[in-house]
């Protein structure tokens, strides 16, 4: 039996964070490094319980390896928590990186302009 979907007022309010990773010239990292780096930092800083409250998810399909741009989904109350965690990442694998937040929006469609 398939569950009926929740009415809009009962659903969690989502936010999508568009970010860009700025690597050092000549250094390149893989998507797996990014995923591991973000998850490990989030779990270290917030703990398992803290991460559960953010509804965090890294959207794999939206990752652009050429421009180093990606999208994170979280709930509307945890945007600042997730962004602060991104600031604590200074390395992905062996590569030194810096995160830039480009836009926060309620839909993925609006982020496509950036």
């Amino acid at each position: 039996m398939k569950l009926k979907i929740l009415p809009p007022s009962m659903r969690e309010k989502k936010r999508y964070i568009l970010f860009q990773v700025i690597p050092e010239p000549g250094e390149e990292f893989a998507y797996a490094d990014l995923e591991a780096g973000i998850w490990n930092t989030m779990l270290d800083f917030l703990g398992e319980y803290g991460v559960s409250g953010t509804s965090f998810w890294l959207l794999k399909d939206s990752w652009n390896q050429k421009e180093h741009k990606g999208i994170i989904r979280c709930n509307n109350k945890s945007v600042n928590t997730v962004v602060a965690c991104l600031g604590l990442i200074d390395r992905l694998g062996d590569n030194r990186v810096c995160f830039k937040i480009l836009k926060v929006s309620g839909t993925i469609k609006k982020l496509k302009k950036y």
Partner: peptide, 21 residues
């Protein structure tokens, strides 16, 4: 220069430390 942070990240950290936006 690697330790410079995006202004949005700095603002977010302050909100975690107890300031309003």
């Amino acid at each position: 220069h690697l330790q410079l942070k995006d202004p949005f990240i700095l603002i977010s950290m302050l909100t975690l430390l107890g300031l309003e936006i």
